[in-house]
């Protein structure tokens, strides 16, 4: 079991990372680097963070009970040392990749995660825009298998925390690209800008937490292209900074779709667990349909250009 000193260290790191936000604003004010802040947007981010901490505190007991239950019925005893922590960290990162991918591909889970993507700005304060319902969606139980294998719940929690702390610095436009080896192996601001973009080309890509290898391995890696700057936010953006509306808008959308009359069970399940933007009447805005429309547009404009040349 890891010593409490490790957790105190992560608290200090967290405070240090928070200091980077005003630093980014200061540096960006010199106009040497790119970073866009908006007062209302940043205040909404802070409000979402406060709410997230509050609800995490309220409901984490349920999740921890499940983790402890699994640990009591563990398959083996994994001691806490440097090697076991490395293994735990890699496993946790794979868990994060899977969790993240499901969170983007199924509307029920997206309803919780969409909060983090709802800002049209991308800066260090975007980190703070966190879900209020992550415990509620059920995916938090994906942490249970590690405890069942035999990793102590504190080790699981430490790996989880370190993974999230790593992801703080990648929410920025101030850093263009890291060295090539770094870009290949690890998640970087460039990769994460793609992940937060709503351009059809960039949708549903780069789910990695720390190691980019998961995206490369499972075919979800998309590099940032200079000719197509990311447009941050959602396909259908929010027109509010009200934290309650930000936190619940997709759930309200699900409820409204479920209230439609005359839907089959299959269609109702589609509105619940189908990909975000799915519609029963064919007027979809899913990633696949948006990419198809974009490809058709490009082909059309390419054809028109060819005709002009001829």
């Amino acid at each position: 079991m890891p010593d409490t000193a490790y957790f105190h260290a992560t608290d200090l790191v967290q405070l240090g990372l928070l200091l980077l936000i005003p630093l980014e604003i200061l540096v960006a004010s010199t106009a040497r680097v790119r970073a866009e802040y908006d007062l209302r947007d940043t205040l909404a981010n802070i409000a979402m963070s406060v709410g997230s901490i509050f609800f995490w505190g309220m409901y984490s007991g349920i999740f921890m009970t499940a983790v402890w239950f699994a640990y009591r019925h563990r398959l083996a005893d994994v001691p806490f040392n440097a090697w076991s922590f490395v293994i735990a960290f890699v496993l946790e990162d794979l868990r994060y990749y899977l969790w993240h991918r499901i969170s983007h591909r199924s509307r029920w889970f997206w309803a919780s995660h969409v909060i983090h993507h709802s800002s049209q700005h991308f800066n260090l304060s975007t980190n703070l825009r966190q879900s209020w319902t992550s415990q509620f969606s059920g995916l938090i139980l994906m942490n249970v298998p590690m405890a069942f294998i035999g990793f102590h719940p504190s080790t699981v929690a430490l790996a989880f925390t370190v993974n999230l702390l790593y992801q703080f610095w990648i929410h920025t436009e101030t850093i263009d690209k890291m060295p090539r080896w770094f870009e290949w192996l690890l998640n970087t601001p460039s990769h994460h800008r793609v992940h937060h973009a709503s351009n059809a080309r960039y949708l549903d890509a780069n789910y990695a937490g720390v190691f980019m290898i998961w995206d490369r391995l499972f075919g979800t890696f998309v590099p940032e292209q200079i000719e197509e700057p990311p447009r941050y936010g959602l396909v259908k953006n929010l027109g509010t900074v009200n934290p309650i509306r930000i936190a619940l808008h997709e759930y309200v959308g699900i409820a409204r779709d479920q209230a439609r009359r005359g839907l089959s069970l299959r269609q109702r399940l589609g509105y619940f667990f189908g990909p975000p933007g799915w519609r029963h009447d064919g007027r979809q805005t899913t990633t696949a349909s948006l990419r198809a429309a974009e490809a058709a547009r490009r082909e059309q404009s390419g054809g028109a250009r060819e005709m002009r040349h001829a």
Binding site: L15, L18, P22, I25, Y37, L39, T42, I46, S125
Partner: peptide, 26 residues
């Protein structure tokens, strides 16, 4: 002590952030 430290640091950060945002606001 730890709780007060966290609250203090966050308060300072909050004020700093707010001031910077007001200054930066265009």
């Amino acid at each position: 002590k730890e709780l007060l430290f966290s609250i203090g640091v966050n308060l300072v950060l909050g004020v700093l952030l707010f001031a910077l945002l007001l200054w930066k606001r265009r």
